[in-house]
Design a binder for these strands. Structure first.
Lengths: 204, 204
DNA sequence: CACAAAGCTTACGCGCAAGTAAAATTGAGT
DNA sequence: ACTCAATTTTACTTGCGCGTAAGCTTTGTG
């Protein structure tokens, strides 16, 4: 038998798990205290290693932040993929986009995508993240426009409407904790109910 | 004549104007780069003085942040006062509360009330601000409850509904700039339209 | 004009936290 | 049990930025 060791994690796998764990801890503390107010010593302490150990997994502090933010953007990007493969009206796709987005955010719990955080990164990574942000925003607006065109949504200002809901969604991480009484799916359902009722076109 | 100098600002007045100007500059940079990433030298440079001049107006960096955040909280507190003196249903008061809140925020342009910012302050000021935050939130929820009781709003989860809109509102400062094509009153009207349509009770 | 108070500057001390070098430890495969 | 790479540590350098001390400049007032 080449390897009856299937159940036990390999070195590579352990390394990856430790990386993920470190990212989760880092993201939590960054969100609580802010990137610049958080020292690597603090993050390392919480994990149970010394600061220098982190440098074995991440190039530097910026890299750590970058990957934390990437988690958050991936939530949006994955939500978009789900929405695109969803067969249905623009109205339904819009709903799917935001439902997935919200639930991903609450599951993954990455770093806030604040201006302060993004601007703490090197120019190149800033560009990349801003680009991804714009992409999600454009997709969201496009769906709203299509939904208006198909008559399922009232004639609204698309920019305002998109910002309205994106704001509410991004804010979720501020008040919804990991051990919240409310499950991610409950929160997303409530939010969608509020949003969709706000924009839906009703028969005269 | 005791003083034919009425048109010219007195020393006290000039001092106060400079303080205000400094606060506005500080809040803008804090919002762009984050509190800890912003040096006093930077703020002073932008104003056109040296760092030490700021110490003539503010006790220290924390004090500067504290007052920037206070601007934002005052927007909420003043909105509440306006709403309370407004004669009408809970539904109308709710609308008034948020309309004023949004417009004040866009006019005053204080500092974001993020966890990171608040936790950068001394314990005592943290307490005070958290208290004020809770007060506004409680008032918002109370109005929603009353509006449900009076039958003008659907039976919704009050906590979720309040967080939903507070999130959208707080996010405004992220995308609405001072020279935005859209006036504060236009933005607030749009937002209220979206929110109120989302929660209103409709005849069967 | 004198002179005090207000307003601001230059020069510096000091602590904290990012990042590095090199040594110590662990543990998987032989 | 031995080896060597993977992992983590201890000990250190460095720079940035807050805050202070001491002095210079401006301005209103008698």
């Amino acid at each position: 038998m080449a390897n009856w060791n299937g159940a036990v994690a390999s070195r590579e796998e352990i390394r990856e798990l430790k990386r993920r764990a470190a990212l989760r801890v880092a993201a939590r503390i960054f969100n609580e205290k802010g990137y610049h107010a958080t020292s690597l010593d603090e993050i390392a302490d919480e994990i149970g290693v010394t600061k220098t150990a982190l440098y074995y997994y991440f190039k530097n502090k910026e890299q750590l932040l970058y990957e934390c933010i990437k988690v958050t953007y991936d939530c949006g990007a994955n939500a978009r993929l789900e929405a695109e493969k969803f067969n249905g009206t623009a109205f339904e796709k819009l709903q799917e986009l935001y439902r997935r987005f919200m639930e991903n955010l609450m599951e993954e719990r990455g770093a806030y995508t604040t201006m302060a955080n993004i601007r703490s990164l090197p120019a190149e990574q800033q560009q990349e993240l801003m680009e991804r942000r714009r992409n999600l925003d454009r997709y969201s607006r496009m769906l709203i426009e299509k939904a208006i065109a198909e008559g399922s949504v009232r004639k609204l200002d698309v920019r305002i409407t998109s910002n309205f809901f994106l704001g509410a969604v991004n804010w979720i991480l501020r008040w919804h904790t990991e051990d919240d009484a409310m499950k991610p799916s409950d929160v997303s359902a409530h939010f969608l109910d509020l949003f969709m009722n706000g924009i839906v076109q009703r028969p005269a």
